[in-house]
Design a protein around this nucleic acid. Structure first.
Lengths: 195, 195
DNA sequence: GCGTTAATATGATGATCATCATATAAACAC
DNA sequence: GTGTTTATATGATGATCATCATATTAACGC
């Protein structure tokens, strides 16, 4: 049947939003087209009116979720005086650990993304440098090259800590992983400052 | 047909070795039973004489590969005087980056492991603390509790750096991620020492 | 050497996968 | 109001998935 104007655009956006969340929650390969469409209240057939393949959806959804996924954390950090400290604490918060579908795409999917090729891999690969530079701008460092280097190591630490905190089934260990990640990250930043 | 004694044990070992490597190279979900058996020179039917389900294979293969996957790096580190420096440099070497199938299971699979449940998840979860303690023993720190804390942050940084180095398609960026990871890790260790 | 046993092969099961052809029916143009 | 257009639904395709029943055949016990 036919729907009012703008309906298709809205459906497409809905599919993309759900895909972005479910990919982070369940992994890209684990989310099927039919299940995704059902989640959007539709049947599987209409999918190819919106995307010419699952790969195109994946690339598009990633392009969106890699930009947006950490927006709230960045927004929060950019509003405070201790920008990088706020970012570190928000990134390694229990809330972020417990809601991967709403959180950082890199922490949820990085090894799976590294195994992709074509446009999916390219999208993931190209999203990294701007993300690192965005972290770099939270640092007190003025030199962009050293900000990039510092942001790279800092983000590696944050992403690794979040992943390990999600891996363990022991809640106390999980909390302590977040805590040691925060401490080390703050240490790392202060060491940067001293150099 | 029937085979000589010991043949079945050897086949089982072969399946486990290939599974451990391929899971790290391709992801757990991406490796099918039939393709795995073909890789071992067998057909799919015999699989269930060795494992009662794919999940049992996954748990068993992970149990093996999480112990063994970093053995060479640990062995190398434990033989040198600068144990932790050697470990850091070996973990973040281009060789390790380029051969995930022979490398650290955590760095290859962590987010996918965190999404599992049952015995697979339990195996992954239980392998983490001994791994962290093994790193802790490379540190100059004598107090086991603080060694554990330091090892946790250090390993987070190493794993995150390796994953990001594998993610990017830009070889120069990939190398620089390894380098900044090494520098920050060495920094982190010297900060630990100062405390 | 003959019957039993054991390791793998063959082939089938039903489920799910991405993808596509076609049907439907309501909104729009006139 | 009638006919066209369009967004989605229905249903089918062939591929692959984990799993299992059964066939094969060589090694072993006697």
């Amino acid at each position: 049947m036919r729907y009012g104007s703008g309906h298709k655009e809205e459906t497409r956006r809905k599919i993309l939003d759900i895909a972005g969340r479910r990919f982070r929650d369940e992994g890209i390969e684990a989310v099927g087209v039919a299940s995704l469409m059902a989640d959007a209240g539709l049947t599987h057939g209409g999918f190819y009116a919106h995307f010419k393949s699952k790969d195109e959806l994946v690339a598009t959804a990633l392009d969106q979720s890699m930009c947006e996924s950490s927006d709230r954390i960045f927004d929060l950090a950019e509003q405070t005086s201790d920008k990088i400290g706020t970012f570190i604490r928000a990134y390694l918060s229990p809330t972020h650990r417990d809601t991967p579908g709403k959180g950082c795409t890199f922490s949820a999917l990085t090894p799976e993304l590294a195994r992709q090729d074509g446009s999916v891999r390219a999208t993931a690969s190209e999203a990294l440098p701007p993300y690192l530079d965005r972290i770099g701008r939270l640092l007190p460092t003025t030199d962009p090259a050293s900000a990039r280097r510092q942001a790279t190591a800092l983000f590696s630490l944050l992403m690794g800590s979040l992943q390990l905190a999600r891996l363990t089934e022991d809640p106390a260990l999980s909390d302590s992983i977040l805590e040691s990640g925060i401490k080390a990250a703050l240490n790392l930043v202060s060491v940067f400052e001293g150099v």
